[in-house]
Design a protein around this nucleic acid. Sequence first.
DNA 1: AAGTAGCATTCCTCTGATAAGAGTGCTAAA
DNA 2: TTTAGCACTCTTATCAGAGGAATGCTACTT
Lengths: 329, 329
Amino acid sequence: MITARQEALLKLIIEDYIKTVTPVSSKALEEIMGCSSATIRNEMATLEKEGLLEKTHISSGRIPSDKGYRYYVDYLMKPEELTGSDVLKLQTIFKNNSLVLSDAISKSMEIVAELTNYTAVVLGSSSSDNKIVKVEVVPISEDKMLAIVITDKGHVENRTVFLDQSIDRAEVKKTVDLISKLIVGASLTEVPAVLEYEVKPAIASYTNQYEALYNAFYNAFSDFSSKVNVKVSGANNLLMEPEFNDVDKIRKLLTKFDDQNLIRSIKTDDENIKIYIGSENGVDDDISVIKTYYYKDGEEGTIALIGPKRMEYGKAEALLNYIKNNIGN
Amino acid sequence: MITARQEALLKLIIEDYIKTVTPVSSKALEEIMGCSSATIRNEMATLEKEGLLEKTHISSGRIPSDKGYRYYVDYLMKPEELTGSDVLKLQTIFKNNSLVLSDAISKSMEIVAELTNYTAVVLGSSSSDNKIVKVEVVPISEDKMLAIVITDKGHVENRTVFLDQSIDRAEVKKTVDLISKLIVGASLTEVPAVLEYEVKPAIASYTNQYEALYNAFYNAFSDFSSKVNVKVSGANNLLMEPEFNDVDKIRKLLTKFDDQNLIRSIKTDDENIKIYIGSENGVDDDISVIKTYYYKDGEEGTIALIGPKRMEYGKAEALLNYIKNNIGN
DNA sequence: AAGTAGCATTCCTCTGATAAGAGTGCTAAA
DNA sequence: TTTAGCACTCTTATCAGAGGAATGCTACTT
C-alpha cells in the first residue's frame, strides 16, 4: 500500500519522465510537491522498495519500472481527450465513404502513427461469417486453372490450381461444378470440412482419379480462412525515439519486427482496449503495446499501437478508442 | 591511364577491403605484390591521384572510392561461379512447379537475401500483354458492387464500385453487360481508353445518369495496369553490416527504405544486369544497387539487390543472373 | 629510372587522471 | 514528520600521454 502523497509523486515522476526521457531528481519536484527534496527522497526510496521506481545507477534520479507504469495506467492516468486537429485529420478518412472498410482502417492507423510517432499495426482478416456467394474457375494454361471465390461481404480470394495433364478435362469440369454447388453458401472456415466430407465422397463416386483431383482443389481452397493481412505503419518511428539511441537496441528490435509470427502474435479478440507494458507484451521489454479487437461487416481484426514504454498512454488509448468507435458505423 | 601493376594493386586493395572492412595498408600487401611497402605506397599515391582510392585520415590505409569500385566492376572483377550449395537452395524453388511465377521469384529472392546478407527487392507487375478474359460484377450491398477482372495470364484484380442508390439498377445491369462485352479481349493498359471512347458514348446513348455511372466504373477499372507489387526481403540485413554501426546512418537509411517511391524508383527495363555504386544509384551514397529486368508469361518487373558498396559484386551478379535465367523457363 | 630503407610526421586509440556536477542516503536536529 | 546538511557515489567531460599504425618523402642502391 502506498500513501496518497506517494501516489501523487509517482504520477509526477512518470509524467516528467515521459516528457523528458531523463531520470527525475528529488530536487526537480520540490516546488510542485511543496516539501523539501529530502522528504521526496524518502518517499522515492519507499516507492523503489515497492518496485514502482528504479535507478539507472546508484546516485541517479528515478525512472519508472514496468510495475510503476502499470500502476500509473491502472490507477493514476486520466483519460485524455483528442485535440481538435487530431480528430479533424481522422474524420477525413471516415467521412469519405468511397473507401472500403479495411482501407479506411489502414489509412486511419497510418495517420495515428504520424500523430503519435509510434508504430501502428493492423491485423485484419475476413471474419468467419463471410459466406461464399460465387465460385469461378478459369483455365489459364494446359495444367493451370485459377480458382476465385467471392463472399457476400465483398472479399475476393484467388488461388492457382495445378492439374496434371493426364486428368480428363471433362471430369475436371464436373468436379468444378460440384464444388461450386456444394461450397456456395458455406462460410470460409467451413470450406475444408465441406471439401472433406461432401465433395470428396462425391468425386470418388464418379472417377477413379479422384485423389489427384481432390488434392489439387483442396490445396487451393483450404487456406482461405487463415489469411491474415498485416499492415505496419511507421515502423521506424519507434526507432527514432531517444531510448533507441543505440545500434544494438535498434538491431534487436528490427530483427523482431522482421518476424511476421511475432507481429501476428499481437492479435487479440478482446473488445476492450488493453495495454501491455514492457515485459507484459510478448514482443520486447523496451516497448509497450496497446491494442483492441474490431469487427464490422464481415471483417475483423486487431488494431495496435507500439510505442516506447514512456508512451503517452492516455492519448494512445483515446486514439484507438476513436477509431474503434468509427469502425462501428 | 594506370599501369598493369597499379591495376593489380587496386584489385587487391578492393578485395581485401571487401573482406575486412578495414583500410588496407601498404605493408599488408608487401608479400603478395612481391615488392617493398615503399613501392606500394608510391603506387597507392598514384591511384589516389587518379581518384580510385581514398584515405579516411591523413595517415590511414587506403579504401576504394566510388570511382575505384566502378573501375573494379568494369575491368577487374572476374565473373563468379555460384557454389553448389547456393544453387541447390535455389533449385528447390524452381524445380517446384506448383508455384506461381511471381511467388517463385519472391521466394528465390528471399533466399538470395539470406545467402548474401544483402537486401533483395522485387518490383513486379502484370505486363501490358495481359488480356482480359472475364469480367464479373457482384453486388455486395445496396450501394456497393465488386468488380473482378481476370486476365489470360492468370491475374485477378478486384475493385469496389460505389453506386448511389438513386441510380436505376436496371441501367447498372445494362452498363455492366456493356462494359464486359467491350472490355474482354482488351489488355489492362487499354482499359481506360476503351472506357473513355467506347463505353462512355454508349452509356450516354441510353441514360441521362451516365455521368455517375461512368465515373463509378471508371474509378474502379482505370488503375489496373499501374499496380506494381513491391517485395523487400532482408531489409535489415543491410543494417547489420559494420558500415552501419552508427545510429544516424541506420536511421537515414531506414527513412529512405520507408519511402515507397524511392524503392519503386529502382525499377528498370534494362535486360542487362547493371550495377550502380554509391552516388550512381539514386537511393543512398553508402550503398550499391545491382538490378535487372525480367519478363515471362505476362509478368514483368525488376529484381534487385541492395548491399553495402563493398558488396561482393561478382557473387551478386551471378545470383541475379541465375534467377533471371531460371525465370526464362 | 625504378625500387627501397629509413625516418619524421600525422593521426587514431586507449588509458588514466582529474575536476565538476548531479544525485542519493543517512544522521541528527527542528 | 520534516528537513538541513554532509559524505558518498557515479556520470560526464576534458586532458595528457603513450603506443601504434600508417603515410610521405628523402636519399641511397641497383
